[in-house]
Amino acid sequence: MPDNPAQTWENTIIHRDLHGHVTHELGKAILRGDVAPGSPLPREAELMERFGVSRTVLREALRTLTSKGLIESRPKVGTRVRPREAWNLLDADMLDWYARVAPPLQFALKLQEMREMIEPYAAALAADNHEDSSRERLTRAHQAMVDAQNVDEWVRADLDFHLGVLAACSNELLIPLGALIERTLEGQLRLNAKRADVYNASLAEHTAVFYAILARDASAARRAMADLLGVTRGRIEA
């Protein structure tokens, strides 16, 4: 007798949820240092019991972690954690897990360093290369920042503004970067807004970036974004 389609669908969703949960928890444990690089993972039977899952679910989770560079399996050696330099932290899931387990200040500063390396030059590229559609997106984001009435509205607009700057560069390699850091960047923007005297304290700095990009003044856009990120660093280090 054929399977009930509704039951089959439900079983598939449960299977995916279990796989995702095991992947998430094991990934965080490794990034947190519960299992040191070069050390073996617990045996399959132990992991199956710990998470209450089948061997199939566990092995799917391990394959996912292997694809992200966290672990490797070898005959007669078993499954071990790979060296830190092999970890693919430029992966949305990995970055999210790392943000959850890394010391908060340490992670915030690492993300800030990455932003300082990229965003001022992205603002200059946006000034040189923006098109009608990307200019309109930046205009909407900036206006939403001006109109924001609370932290949530401000953070959504702030995030869209910074992602809009990357999109305005007209460089296909920078757009995925925005998607990669979106979740972690949103967390940092929210923290910065809450640490400021008022949530929109950096509106003037964002406005300077916005008008420099619209004026196609690449040097001014780069300086304005560097100034904005300097304010951000000051709040992180305070």
Rank of each mutant, 00 (worst) to 15 (best):
P2E: 11
D3T: 08
A6V: 13
T8P: 01
T8L: 11
W9Q: 12
E10Y: 11
T12G: 10
I14W: 09
H15R: 14
H19N: 09
H19S: 14
H19K: 11
H21T: 11
H24P: 00
H24W: 12
L26H: 07
K28A: 05
I30Y: 02
G33C: 09
D34A: 13
A36M: 10
A36T: 08
P42H: 04
M48H: 03
G52P: 04
G52N: 09
S54T: 15
S54D: 11
R55D: 14
R59L: 10
A61Q: 04
A61T: 08
T66N: 08
S67Y: 08
S67I: 02
G69A: 02
R74S: 03
R74W: 05
R74V: 03
P75W: 05
V77Y: 01
V77N: 01
V77M: 04
R84W: 05
W87F: 15
W87S: 00
N88L: 13
N88C: 06
L90D: 13
D91L: 01
D91C: 02
D93I: 01
M94N: 07
L95F: 01
A99F: 08
R100S: 11
V101H: 01
L105I: 09
Q106I: 10
A108N: 06
K110Q: 14
K110M: 13
L111P: 02
E119H: 10
A124L: 05
A126N: 05
D128C: 07
H130R: 13
E131K: 12
S133K: 11
R135H: 11
R135S: 13
R135M: 12
E136A: 15
E136T: 12
E136K: 11
R137W: 13
L138R: 04
T139W: 08
R140Q: 14
H142A: 09
A144H: 08
A144T: 06
A144D: 14
M145G: 06
D147V: 04
Q149K: 15
N150F: 07
V151E: 14
D152E: 15
L159A: 13
D160W: 08
H162W: 10
G164D: 05
L166D: 03
A167N: 05
A168M: 04
L173F: 12
L174P: 02
I175T: 14
I175R: 12
I175L: 07
A179V: 06
I181K: 01
E182K: 06
T184R: 07
L185P: 00
G187E: 02
Q188Y: 05
L189Q: 01
N192Y: 07
N192Q: 12
A193W: 03
D197G: 10
D197R: 10
V198N: 06
Y199I: 01
S202D: 15
E205V: 06
E205D: 14
H206A: 04
H206W: 05
T207N: 07
T207D: 15
A208G: 02
F210K: 00
L214Y: 03
L214S: 01
R216L: 06
R216F: 10
D217G: 07
A218L: 08
A218Q: 05
A218H: 08
S219V: 11
S219H: 10
A220K: 11
R223K: 14
A224R: 05
M225C: 12
M225Q: 15
A226W: 08
A226K: 06
L228P: 02
G230S: 15
I236H: 06
E237S: 06
E237M: 13
E237C: 07
A238Q: 14
